[in-house]
Amino acid sequence: MLTLIAREIRDNIVSVALPCLVSALGITVAVIFAFSRGNGGTFPVTIMFTPILLLAFCSLGASQAYGDRANRISSLLATLGITRNRIFAARVLAGLLIVLICLVPLAVTTIFLLWRFAPPLEFYGRMVAEISLTVLLAAVACYFAGLLVGWTTSKAWLLAGCVLLLLSLASLVVIKGFGPAAMALLALFLGATLWYTWHTFTSASL
């Protein structure tokens, strides 16, 4: 399984590096901005980088699925005695790992800078937790949406599907906010897309 995960990362190194780069850039800019102003203002900076990260996660999922479909990587791996379930599990675990690697440091940095410069956390601690969790669910949902639309041989459908689903997920957060309602809908969406993607992958002919 670790070998499969390493192979997934290696095969999509560009799509993996992109969100990591965006996250690192966001952390750097937030730190510089906060310390240069001396009174915080970190939150708006990290908000600006969040949509870019969501786009990067969607492109990661799309590139994984599209690359597999176009280059028949699963067909090759299947000849090595690896089941499709393991291939899919390795793909999803690799994606989730990248999402966590990119988001967790950004969230920790934001919380640290808020603690350093902003009023005490006892009031908006819950707000920070809910917003962080909602963004994490949205990021995972964007990644699964990329997996869903990436399983195609048409680049036009790939692009249109990515744009449609990204806009839909972003508007879902805008409409419902960051509370439990938004989290429930995002969890429902990512569960449904994960199942549909798994079903499509395991039942497709190689």
């Binding site: 839909s168 879902l172 409409i175 569960g191 199942w195 079903h199």
Partner: peptide, 22 residues
């Protein structure tokens, strides 16, 4: 498996359509 697939598809369709109508 087919039943769950139908339910999953239905959830995504309802969600996307509700967003568009909203």
């Amino acid at each position: 498996r087919a039943t769950v697939n139908v339910l999953a598809t239905g959830v995504v369709v309802v969600l996307l359509m509700s967003l568009g109508l909203f």
